[in-house]
C-alpha cells in the first residue's frame, strides 16, 4: 500500500536521514520526498511530505513506532487514494438503470472511488455509452471493483467492456 506522510523535522543537517531510516529499515520503498519550505512552522520546523510503499498496515505501525522512538513528529498520515486507475466502458440504458446507484455501489467499497464519468447519450431508441474511471488504492481493490461492476452490469443488462490487461 502507498502511504502519504508529513513529518516535521528540525531544519538542521542529518534530520532527514533520521526520518527516513525507520522507513527503510522495515522495507518501505520511498517514492517521493518533498520539502515544504513555504510551510515552515513558527518554531522553525520544516514539514517534509513523503510518499512510500509498504507491505501492509502492520509494517506501517512498526515504522510509526520507530519514528516516535527517534523523536520524529508525524503530523499527517494517510493512505494515498486512487493509486490504481482503471478505465472501463459501459453500454446500455445507463441512465435509466440508475447510474447514481451504480456509482454508489462502487464508492461503497473502502479505498475505491469513481473518479470520472463521461456519458454519451444514444440517439432516440439507441443505447447510451459511458466511460468510467475507477480509482483504487491497490490492485486487489481495483479487481474487486471490476467484479462488483460486472455483477451490477449483468443485473442491469449493461455491457461492460474492461481492459484486456485486467484479467
Amino acid at each position: 500500500m502507498l502511504v502519504k506522510m508529513v513529518m516535521e523535522l528540525e531544519d538542521v543537517p542529518g534530520q532527514l536521514l533520521k526520518g527516513l531510516e525507520p522507513i527503510a529499515r522495515y522495507g518501505g520503498n520511498i517514492k517521493s520526498i518533498m520539502h515544504q519550505r513555504e510551510r515552515k512552522t513558527p518554531l522553525g520546523r520544516l514539514p517534509v511530505m513523503l510518499i512510500f510503499e509498504v507491505r501492509d498496515q502492520a509494517t506501517l505501525k512498526r515504522i510509526l513506532a520507530a519514528l516516535k522512538e527517534a523523536g520524529i513528529r508525524v503530523t499527517q498520515l494517510g493512505e494515498r487514494e486512487g493509486e490504481i486507475l482503471t478505465t472501463v466502458l459501459l453500454v446500455g440504458h445507463i441512465v435509466h438503470t440508475d447510474i447514481r446507484h451504480t456509482i454508489d455501489q462502487l464508492n461503497a467499497i473502502k479505498g475505491v472511488t469513481v473518479s470520472e464519468l463521461n456519458l454519451a447519450v444514444g440517439s432516440m431508441g439507441r443505447e447510451s455509452s459511458a466511460r468510467m474511471t475507477i480509482a483504487a488504492n491497490d490492485r486487489e481493490l481495483a479487481q474487486l471493483a471490476i467484479s462488483r461492476l460486472q455483477t451490477i452490469a449483468e443485473k442491469k443488462g449493461l455491457l461492460l467492456v474492461t481492459s484486456v490487461e485486467a484479467i
Binding site: T87, V91, N118, G122, R126, T133, V161, I167
Partner: peptide, 22 residues
C-alpha cells in the same frame, strides 16, 4: 452492442475497442 460513441470514448482515453479471444 458496441456503439460509435463507445469507440470515441475509448479513443479519448487512449484506448481502442477490440474483439479479443482468450
Amino acid at each position: 452492442r458496441i456503439t460509435p460513441e463507445a469507440t470515441r470514448l475509448a479513443h479519448e482515453a487512449g484506448q481502442m475497442i477490440k474483439l479479443v479471444g482468450i
